[in-house]
Design a protein around this nucleic acid. Structure first.
Lengths: 253, 253
DNA sequence: ACGTTTCTTTGCGCCAGATCAAAGACGCGC
DNA sequence: GCGCGTCTTTGATCTGGCGCAAAGAAACGT
């Protein structure tokens, strides 16, 4: 993974960002070979796919695109984290999804030919590859295993949406929060001494938007768990200290 | 669309059903040509695809497969309706999806190589085509436009899941029910004098499972709407009389 | 016709969790 | 160090809709 400079660049136009990230030459397969997503593809396919991509560096807090825009591109995350926030007509927000390395972003809209349904914001400084819809569809036609990878990825994606849908309509808040935290730990946690730490900034507010609860309720629940030694951490920072206990909260009747 | 005999066959094994439905010869593209799903494919591709399929007739109330089974096949609905019900570990149910003509069923599990996440039950007598995973994946490799069609279909599917997810975590019950009814009318409604009728049996219970409400609440809400002349219909039967009014309930603040 | 089953309606009490309100904590820029 | 903005905690109150209970009403089988 290329290590890039870290000047505080903010709100740069996509072109500007892209220029920052690319030293002008075509990418080769090496940047994507390690991703699970591409594991079925051979080297020449990887070169072809990566060569057609444009890399983008996205500073923390900046959006990859905005909800409602026509889909001009689709992305795959190389490093970093995004949270996709959907805003309702009434102005309420929901975190519909988190994306990390190897995850596609914007594909749904590109294939459905509908406006982007949410705004993916970088939770940490991130790098993503970008393709135009035409280019990517041509790549899929050229490399059937790529189609299959996309389909598999979307499949997992649908499963997660259905799981959350089921949870949100059958489970109480505490359980939903427990599931959300467990999912986070699994998808984006790294072991530290005394637990698993969520490796990117996560506010109570975010957790609320992910579970359909209010900020206040999330805070109360986490405070209670903290007292019981189940979780720890402070401001924008969460450590799962006792996964067993949390799993019990999530599953038990 | 082939018209089949209507003997009261119940709980027959898949093989038995299949034999009933196929008079022994390979299908050709004509059975699927009219479906939107296949509109990008040419005649030879359609023949190839349909030829590899096995048709199944599913009587009302019978399941195509059961939640938890390993995915042995994927289906596309030719006629009829299915409701996919997911049962939670605690025994609660959720209707995660409705499927009608042109919709894929079981694809998510087949591609993700995970057990079926729900049980699709025929809401009316239905006909579906069936492929084994290997066969279908081979077809996708042979016909890139088929991959694209699958991906598009999954895209729409994800959008709907996200919409419902957003609704269920930000909206009150009445609104959610309103949205669900509007979606039903759009997906499976036909005009009759004085409104739009949902063209398959839909109990209050189903509506409750679709919206994450209780049977009781749904009943109350529908009763109120009936008094206002917004909807009508009786047992397992729903007519949307005033779509405007319902849209107002769904959107207005 | 009759009982059985499935589906629907309606009433009442209660509680999880939203809403309203306000005061701490932590981090950052100046 | 100080002020300001963001994030978090905690309390008090209110209410939507769930849980429980029970009684109709339409379809179905015998």
């Amino acid at each position: 993974m290329p290590s890039l400079s870290c000047e505080p660049l903010r709100h740069g136009a996509p072109e500007e960002r892209a220029r920052q990230a690319t030293p002008g030459r075509r990418l080769d397969g090496s940047v994507i070979r390690h991703l699970d997503f591409f594991k079925e593809l051979d080297d020449s396919a990887l070169d072809d796919i990566a060569g057609a991509a444009r890399p983008e560096r996205i500073p923390r807090g900046e959006a990859l695109f905005r909800q409602g825009e026509p889909p001009h591109a689709l992305f795959i995350v190389l490093s970093g984290r995004f949270k996709a926030i959907q805003v309702t007509p009434e102005g309420r927000q929901v975190v519909v999804r988190l994306a990390g390395p190897g995850d596609l972003i914007g594909h749904v809209s590109v294939f459905a030919e509908k406006p982007y349904p949410a705004t993916p914001t970088a939770a940490t400084e991130s790098i993503a590859l970008m393709w135009s819809p035409r280019t990517f569809i041509a790549l899929m036609a050229r490399h059937p295993p790529l189609s299959l990878a996309v389909v598999r990825n979307m499949g997992r994606f649908i499963e997660e949406a259905h799981t959350r849908l089921r949870e949100s309509s059958t489970e109480r808040v505490e359980r939903r929060i427990a599931h959300a935290v467990l999912r986070l730990a699994q998808q984006a946690g790294h072991r530290v001494d005394g637990g698993v730490e969520i490796s990117f900034p996560m506010t109570r507010q975010d957790l609320a938007l992910m579970t359909g609860a209010t900020l206040h309720t999330v805070s109360r629940v986490l405070s209670a768990w903290e007292q019981q030694g189940v979780v720890g951490g402070g401001r924008q920072h969460l450590v799962l200290r006792d996964p067993q206990a949390l799993a019990r909260i999530a599953e038990e009747c």
